[in-house]
């Protein structure tokens, strides 16, 4: 089939392209675009509870207030701190396991079993996991306290729920625990995608396992690592179920993340929708920036590679031509 023929055939069916895209577009407009714009609009009003709504005389007041709102800033800080406390150990452990699971010199047995077990917490309802952990860390007779006492690590029970740093640490741990298996599987599949030729060349050059990992595996995993980093950041920014249900964002707001803040401001107590909407928009902009970075990095890589290949091809051609004539 030549190009013009294909073009003709495509054209006659083009209307079906539009037709079949309608459901997606309509639902997107109604349930995603409109609520987004509406949220932004609420940010410019005084909407709370069920009172009549007015656009503010100084429309940007809510946004000015929210970026100076101490509770909101604290919730942003909590989000970042908890995310970092979860991500660094998560990516470290995932990388170590990836190196072990893809090692070509020593094959670990039972990898299938380990993958299934490590990934499992990721599929279990986060709400359930949050309540389960708050029960496990219960005071004074929860299982963790009983373990600490029976192993002689502590003489008396420790109240994890009233300790700010302990609560933060546990929320971060739960995030780490539910996600490292997922990250590891992504990284392992990334390594399996690296061309075996490179490893063979390294073997011939006499590189040892550690050298191979740092010089070949890691650089080739860059895209997958970036993908993991940014999707984890966006997910982390929206952390909600676990901090809300583990300790209701407490004690004293220590585990109140940005999403928990928005929920509490809008849907409990005085229903300050305008404040929650302004906070949502700040979060929305951060997510947009992060997605744009991800999009740029992932796309650019391809384009650059393609461009390079084309250039090399052209060079080859030219060389051939020169040699030929």
């Amino acid at each position: 089939m030549n190009k013009s023929q294909r073009h003709l055939k495509g054209l006659s069916y083009a209307k079906y392209g539009y037709l079949f895209a309608i459901p997606f577009i309509v639902i997107f407009l109604i349930f995603q675009l409109y609520p987004t714009l509406y949220t932004a609009f609420i940010g410019f009003t005084d909407m709370k509870g069920v009172n009549p709504v007015h656009v503010l005389d100084h429309p940007f007041d809510n946004f000015k207030d929210i970026v100076h709102n101490q509770t909101f800033l604290k919730s942003l800080r909590n989000t970042v701190v908890i995310w970092i406390m979860n991500f660094i150990p998560q990516i470290t452990l995932a990388l170590i396991l990836t190196a072990w699971f893809t090692s070509r010199t020593s094959k670990l047995k039972g990898q299938g079993f380990f993958k299934v077990v490590f990934y499992m917490p990721n599929i279990i309802t986060a709400a359930t996991i949050a309540i389960l952990f708050s029960t496990l860390f219960g005071f004074p007779t929860g299982p963790v306290n009983q373990l600490l006492k029976s192993w002689g690590i502590r003489a008396t029970a420790f109240d994890f729920m009233t300790s700010k740093s302990a609560s933060k640490l546990i929320v971060a741990f739960i995030q780490f625990w539910t996600w490292y298996g997922n990250t590891m599987i992504l990284l392992v599949s990334g390594v399996l995608g690296i061309s075996p030729d490179i490893y063979e060349a390294a073997d011939i050059d006499g590189a040892n396992g550690v050298q191979t990992f740092f010089r070949i595996t890691l650089p080739n995993l860059k895209t997958v690592l970036l993908y993991t980093l940014i999707t984890s950041m966006i997910g982390g920014l929206n952390m909600f179920d676990i901090p809300l249900l583990f300790n209701r964002g407490g004690p004293d707001g220590a585990t109140t993340t940005a999403s928990v803040f928005i929920y509490q401001v809008a849907f409990t107590g005085t229903n300050l929708y305008y404040r929650a909407a302004a906070a949502s928009m700040v979060l929305f902009v951060i997510v947009l920036i992060l997605s744009a970075i991800l999009f740029y990095l992932m796309r650019d890589k391809d384009a650059i590679a393609m461009e390079k290949m084309k250039k090399a091809e052209r060079k080859k051609h030219k060389m051939k031509e020169r040699r030929g004539f």
């Binding site: 409109y34 609520p35 509406y38 949220t39 997910g235 929206n238 999403s259 997510v287």
Partner: peptide, 21 residues
Amino acid sequence: ALIMCVLMIPGQVTAIGFYQF
């Protein structure tokens, strides 16, 4: 391009408008 753009946007950040609507 539109699909790629909304790929990452989570429901939480538009929840206020969604609920009011």
